[in-house]
């Protein structure tokens, strides 16, 4: 029993220490962000590596989700004689929830893991140590531009997801189900709020981007210098980032949509 207690205490302590270390690291990265933007080329490179290369994944996922949503909801809404509300319901679902959450999850799987494993391997092959020895702070030169690129990429990917998902829904509703164009778009325009739905969705996406990229760079930077260490960092990035996305989504939703 005492052994279990000891184990739990020890785990708790190391967990807490890691949590604290992550926050300290976060503040260090934030403090260096302005300097990262002073060398915009480094950031642009990362927006390309992390963002542009995730476009096909997010685009296709958004398209299929739009298709499925429209297929499902057209039938269900039709049963209640509310098929005309298909446009607004899909738009609100996608803009408020599915867009930010699924984009962030996909980004964690594609961009987040790439970041964690790249930085972890740089640690394992002593590239980060070499940089320190050349009097170059790796957090400034390697971490900050990647973090900056990542947090720029996620909200843009989210917008792409939104557009493609709505396009997918439009294809089902108009081309397959022969719904009226005017009803689809008109009702959407009438019920979707610019601030409530679109802007709040982008804010959420930005928050998720902060979380996923922070987890990824932190896990990579603190990875153990072994093959197993890099693998663990990559796995932990996906697991922790995904859970963080869901938890933050709840908090953000609670703040943004009290009775809206």
């Amino acid at each position: 029993m005492a052994l279990i207690q000891q184990q739990v205490l020890r785990r708790g302590r190391t967990g807490l220490a890691a949590f604290g270390a992550a926050w300290l690291f976060f503040f260090r990265v934030l403090a260096l962000l302005p300097r990262a933007f002073m060398r915009p080329l480094l950031v642009v490179e990362q927006v390309y590596a992390l963002g542009n290369r995730t476009v096909p994944l997010v685009g296709l996922a958004g398209f299929f989700i739009g298709l499925v949503l429209a297929l499902q909801l057209y039938g269900v809404l039709g049963r209640f004689g509310a098929a005309s509300m298909l446009g607004p319901i899909i738009a609100i679902t996608v803009l408020r929830e599915l867009g930010p959450v699924i984009t962030a999850l996909l980004y964690a799987g594609r961009g987040g893991t790439a970041l964690a494993s790249e930085i972890g391997l740089m640690r394992a092959t002593e590239q980060l140590s070499a940089m320190e020895m050349m009097a170059v702070d790796p957090v400034r030169r390697i971490i900050a531009p990647r973090f900056a690129g990542g947090i720029i990429a996620v909200p843009i990917l989210n917008l792409l997801f939104d557009v493609v998902a709505l396009f997918g829904a439009w294809m089902i509703a108009i081309l397959a189900m022969h719904m009226d164009q005017g009803v689809f778009w008109g009702n959407m325009q009438a019920s979707v709020g610019f601030m409530d739905d679109l802007v709040n969705g982008i804010i959420k996406s930005f928050i998720f981007g902060l979380a996923v990229n922070l987890v990824a760079v932190f896990e990579g930077f603190t990875a153990q210098s072994t093959a197993g260490g890099v693998a663990r960092a990559t796995t932990r990035t996906v697991v922790i980032a995904s859970l963080a996305i869901f938890a933050l989504d709840f908090v953000a939703t609670a703040f943004m949509y009290q009775g809206v």
């Binding site: 740089m122 092959t125 002593e126 590239q127 140590s129 070499a130």
Partner: peptide
């Protein structure tokens, strides 16, 4: 410093 494996930026 010359690291054991060179530690070049890949």
């Amino acid at each position: 410093v010359l690291f054991q494996n060179g530690a070049l930026l890949t």
